[in-house]
Amino acid sequence: MRLACFLIIVTLLAVWVEEAFAEVGAFAPAFLLLLQNERVQPAAWSLIGWTFLQEGVGSLAFGGMFLFLSGVWMFFYAGSRLFERDNIFFAGSVLVFSAFWQRMVVWMMTGLQDISVASSSGVASGFFLQLAVYLFLFIIYSTGFNRFVPGK
């Protein structure tokens, strides 16, 4: 129950963060947090819910968000076989990958769908803004998660 409340609050916060910063995602840190804490089932449900939320409000044909979150999941799974999943540097590297992968997915999808894009920010500044938002939100989400959601 507490986890469900936590996920609802995260969803509301993420939508408002995305409204404040154009072209910036806010769900990947929460997804990473669920994977880190071995909440696989809630992560799978969140993937479906957040995918529909983002695809519904996005401008591309369905598939980008699903590909993005699945890619983050696969990277996390592959990385967790080599590193400790609780390691802060591992979490950081997953977030760096997420920021990079997100740009890749959008680039691929716009190319595939023949859509012209006028980005409001440059490629590098957009990447660093996304990374900063991810790191900041990861700290916020993990603080909230550790405080309100009981351990497994």
């Binding site: 939508v15 995305e18 409204e19 154009a22 072209e23 910036v24 995602g25 939320l53 983002q54 695809e55 409000v57 996005g58 401008s59 591309l60 980008g64 968000m65 993005f68 997100q102 997915v105 959008v106 999808m109 716009t110 859509i115 894009v117 980005s119």
Partner: peptide, 10 residues
């Protein structure tokens, strides 16, 4: 609202 999310590029 305005454009939002990672696929909200238009």
């Amino acid at each position: 609202g305005h454009k939002l999310g990672i696929t909200g590029i238009l």
